[in-house]
Write a protein that binds this DNA or RNA. Structure first.
Length: 529
RNA sequence: GGUCGGUUAGCUCAGCUGGUAGAGCAACGCCCUUUUAAGGCGUGGGUCCUGGGUUCGAACCCCAGACCGGCUACCA
């Protein structure tokens, strides 16, 4: 592998060598005794105070302004930046000014990690700075960082905006764009808040298989792989629902999992092939209870992340204050179109859709037509968090039927900012009904529905032993994070969103693909013949 | 999958009707003891995404491809 180095990269390698020649270890291995972060000093320091007389900080060297025998510089740690005042005579040893004139002024490059010890003070112009008494090289950087500058008005110069660059080299994006770091801090706070909320209620966080011999719990196309020793196919899970409900059968009152799920489908602003879903199942509860729970949890989450329930998301202010609006699906359609279709048969629904300019495929049944009308006419108008309840049974093979309304199940979705963020129901625990629903799915599969569910005999066996009445919910963590962090694309709330392989690695992956992919049989045949 | 747009220096971007490739920051050199997005003066740095074609001549026009993005479709 040869690599062509740019002029700037060559200069940095020369600087590295010069440091080594001067006896400076560019990659020291010892612990550096950091005592403060930039944020702590900025928040804690008051002019003239005796605090912060001895601070030790570390971070990336981000700017340098040399003024003869004195200089100003900035380092950036995980919390922000701190200005440094570096005077030649403070960091050099008497006559020998090499460390200042050579090392500090020339050999340290922007992006290097350094450590400093010194004291905090206020400059003439009123900028809090650390007067450096000792400076240590902690790690040399060999590639130039794009330097982003922000002026007093907050205007950003030379920001790294190219999405490909940001996603492929997220480490650079995180280094130079502090707001990106903050987005992921907020995502982490959000998940922690949810975990705390559920753990306080004594629900148990569990782990269930990612590799599953059959996939279930959602309607989606899976990724397929192969286990060599057992010589059987495995699927990456599209959901963990059926495993969590087995645990309810086993006697836990509440179980939840933050699960990476995998769906072999299109990619978009709202879809990544792997994504995070939090699923929770609670025994002896129903979907009404789960709505109350969801409202309460997300209000708590908003408070934990932002300290308020009113969030700016795009052009809207979204309120997570309880209670949310609730519509039945028919009620929502009536509210937004003025049409009551709760009593309509399939033909009348088809006619209604046509009158609303909605194209309906011939194969669709009653439930799907209702869902189409809702999707076209209602969903995009639901900005504030809203529950939609009472879904058609055909679309919900794992949900319990409504006790009085035929064709309806006890299910709700939470819609926010015009997108589904959660999906929940009173879980179907009647094993005979469940078997029938699976068989209906198999029928759909035979008719070509690639997303029809498989019949899971072991799950049915578990239900036959008995599952208590249970409420379950799945919350799309990435979509919720988009709302909680005010991001337009799922790629902006995933550190490493899925992308096409870079460069010419295609031939390599194709070779590997022949060995490991589910398509190996076809490929082998081709090779033989 | 459809469609529109993009790809030029380490980064952000200009580049007219086809006529020797540009700026700011970053880098390098010199000057300066408290600067404020970037102090002053100077210097270097390019596979103009790739491959063909048209032309005396292509960053620019044509064809094919790669990659990226917006919208759209699919995704209960």
């Amino acid at each position: 592998m040869s690599q062509q180095l740019s002029e700037q990269e060559l200069v940095r390698r020369e600087n590295l060598q010069k440091m080594i020649d001067l006896g400076i270890e560019p990659y020291p291995g010892t612990t550096y005794p950091v005592t403060h972060t930039a944020k702590e000093v900025h928040e804690g320091y008051t002019e003239g105070s005796e605090d912060y007389k001895e601070v030790c900080m570390a971070g990336r060297f981000m700017s340098r302004r040399i003024m003869g025998k004195a200089s100003f510089a900035e380092i950036q740690d995980s919390t922000g930046r701190m200005q440094l005042y570096v005077s030649r005579d403070d960091i050099t040893d008497g006559e020998d000014t090499t460390f200042y004139n050579q090392v500090f002024k020339k050999l340290i490059d922007l992006g290097d990690f350094i450590g400093i010890k010194g004291f905090a003070f206020m400059t003439k112009t009123g900028t809090l700075s650390i007067h450096v008494k000792e400076l240590t090289i902690l790690s040399k950087s060999l590639k130039p960082l794009p330097i982003v500058k922000t002026d007093a008005d907050g205007k950003v110069y030379d920001g790294v905006t190219d999405p490909e660059f940001k996603y492929r080299q997220r480490y650079v994006d995180l280094t130079v764009n502090p707001e990106v770091r903050e987005t992921f801090v907020q995502r982490s706070k959000m998940i922690n808040a949810m975990r705390n909320f559920m753990t306080e209620r004594m629900y148990l966080e569990v782990e269930t298989p990612v590799l599953q011999p059959m996939y279930g719990g959602a309607a989606a196309r899976p990724f397929k792989t192969h286990h060599n020793t057992l010589d059987v196919p495995f699927y990456l899970r599209i959901a963990n629902e059926l495993y969590l409900k087995r645990l309810i059968v086993g006697g836990y009152d509440g179980v939840f999992e933050f699960a990476k799920d995998f769906r072999n489908e299109g990619m978009s602003r709202f879809h990544n092939p792997e994504f995070t879903m939090m699923e929770l199942y609670v025994a002896y509860k129903d979907y009404e209870w789960m709505m109350d729970f969801t409202e309460e949890m997300l209000e708590y989450v908003a408070m934990q992340v932002h300290g308020t329930t009113e969030l700016q998301v795009g052009d809207n202010v979204i309120s997570f204050k309880r209670p949310w609006k609730r519509y039945t699906m028919f009620g929502a359609i009536e509210h937004f179109t003025g049409i009551d279709c709760s009593e309509m048969d399939e033909a009348a629904l088809r006619e209604t859709a046509k009158s609303l300019d909605i194209h309906i495929d011939k194969g669709l049944g009653k439930g799907k037509i209702i869902d189409e009308i809702f999707g076209e006419k209602c969903e995009h108008q639901l900005i504030q968090p809203t529950f939609i309840t009472e879904y058609p049974v055909e679309m919900s093979p794992l949900a319990k039927k409504h006790p009085t309304k035929p064709g309806i199940v006890e299910r709700f979705e939470g819609i926010c900012n015009a997108k589904e963020i959660c999906n929940a129901f009173s879980e179907l625990n009647d094993p005979i009904d469940q078997r029938q629903r699976f068989e209906d799915q198999l029928e759909l599969g035979k008719r070509g529905d690639e997303e029809a569910m498989q019949l899971d005999e072991d799950y049915l066996r578990a239900l036959e032993y008995g599952m208590p009445p249970t409420a379950g919910i799945g919350i799309g963590i990435d979509r919720l994070a988009m709302i909680m962090t005010n991001q337009k694309s799922i790629q902006d709330v995933l550190f490493f969103p899925q992308m096409k392989p870079e460069g010419k690695s295609k031939t390599v992956s194709e070779e590997l693909g022949e060995k490991f992919s589910g398509k190996s049989n076809e490929t082998d045949k081709e090779n033989v013949s």
